[in-house]
């Protein structure tokens, strides 16, 4: 029996995880996959294949971003930043779009212009 099995919440983590925690781990996983993407392409290839390769190959893009051979702590940090950015966008974007929405037709006369 594992220690975590004492906690029903932990034993059923996929169901009980908080949205924030899930977003953070998801961001870390995305960063891990991107890092493996960066690892797959050697930046030395740019010299041989030219700028075209760097522009059109997505692996090259992540190599350009220096996401090669990243360690776990770097991935956790990047995942934290990505999760924070997504959370801010999730909260901020509706507010911006709400401002951009035109006023209802009936309320046009009441707009003080």
């Amino acid at each position: 029996m594992r220690l975590i099995d004492h906690s029903p919440r932990a034993a059923n983590a996929v169901q009980t995880v908080s949205p924030g925690g899930e977003l953070f781990v998801l961001s870390v996983v995305v960063c891990m996959i991107l890092a493996s993407f960066g690892d797959a392409v050697d930046p030395m290839l740019f010299g041989e294949a030219g700028l075209e390769f760097a522009l059109f190959d997505l692996g090259g893009e992540f190599s350009v971003l220096a996401m090669r051979h990243w360690h776990l702590l770097q991935l956790l940090l990047a995942g934290g930043v990505l999760a924070t950015a997504i959370a801010v966008l999730r909260v901020g974007a509706p507010a911006v779009f709400k401002r951009l929405r035109p006023a209802p037709r009936r309320a046009i006369d009441k707009v003080p212009i």
């Binding site: 906690s7 932990a10 995880v17």
Partner: peptide, 19 residues
């Protein structure tokens, strides 16, 4: 402490799975 930690933050288990 470990049990309280994973009970409060089940995302630690998901992070463990990802690691």
């Amino acid at each position: 402490l470990v049990i309280r930690l994973v009970d409060r933050f089940p995302s630690v288990i998901l992070l463990g799975g990802a690691v």
